[in-house]
């Protein structure tokens, strides 16, 4: 997106710290903001609706088959409650369709706008050991100053976002489809790829757990960096630096 050059640069460098300058105009694009919030809603309902599905049989297996009376891979300490997964599944699929549409829109428009190449693909400097060590130690210290004063995605963010978008979401979608006897009648290789019907279910659950952990980390990092300004930036697309300049001017 080319809007960056059209934004006024902060003229009062005394009021706005120098290093915030590059952030003015580097806010989130409209595509990113809309898909982010629609996806937030879809993801909430996906997780919410997974509970009635999960408690109908909180046991996981490896291979094609598995049931009460066979050896489980692991069992979740959840109360067993059957007969409730019908509405849960309806919501789960509705939310899955919504997240699929949103995901396709986000990736498609993002590719057109070179969003992934310019903002998420780590640069050579990003991937240097010195930089990685620096970023990791900043994160470990939960240093607010370093996170709040950061105006480009750091290497950990880049790798995490790319992995979530291009590895884990495709995998959770495919493992979900691998559980469908209708879909696997068309594409039997899909369920073979995951090592069987029950393996696909187990992988689907494990990736879901991983994505929830990602969300928790995402929220924690935002809290460290400043919850309100970061949330505002994801709604209005403008950073505080840009806003401050405008109100001052």
């Amino acid at each position: 997106m080319a809007e960056s050059s059209d934004r006024p640069s902060p003229s009062l460098s005394g009021a706005v710290p120098d290093e915030e300058e590059p952030y003015a105009g580097h806010g989130h694009s409209l595509t990113v903001r809309i898909t982010h919030w629609v996806f937030t809603i879809a993801f909430f309902f996906l997780v919410f609706s997974s509970f009635p599905i999960l408690i109908a049989h909180p046991r996981f297996y490896w291979g094609e088959t598995g049931a009460m009376g066979t050896h489980p891979l692991f069992v979740l300490p959840l109360p067993l409650r059957v007969g409730r997964s019908g509405w849960g599944r309806s919501i789960h699929f509705l939310a899955a369709w919504l997240s699929l549409f949103t995901g396709v829109l986000y990736v498609g428009l993002g590719m057109l706008a070179r969003h992934f190449r310019t903002r998420l693909l780590p640069t050579r400097e990003d991937l240097s050991w010195t930089n990685i060590r620096h970023v990791v130690s900043e994160h470990a210290r939960l240093s607010r100053a370093s996170l709040a004063g950061q105006f480009r995605y750091n290497v950990l963010q880049r790798l995490a976002y790319l992995a979530v978008v291009f590895v884990f979401f495709p995998l959770i979608l495919l493992s979900g489809l691998a559980m469908s006897p209708a879909v696997t009648s068309v594409a039997p290789w899909l369920v073979v790829l995951f090592g069987g019907h029950q393996s696909a279910r187990t992988i689907h659950f494990l990736i879901a757990a991983l994505l929830v952990a990602f969300l928790a980390t995402h929220l924690a990092m935002i809290a460290v960096a400043g919850f309100m300004p970061r949330t505002r930036a994801m709604i209005t697309g403008r950073s505080r630096a840009a806003r401050r300049t405008e109100t001052l001017v």
Partner: peptide
């Protein structure tokens, strides 16, 4: 064929 219950378990 595989018989899969909506609850999550299955058998062949």
């Amino acid at each position: 064929t595989l018989h899969a219950c909506e609850e999550g378990w299955s058998y062949i």
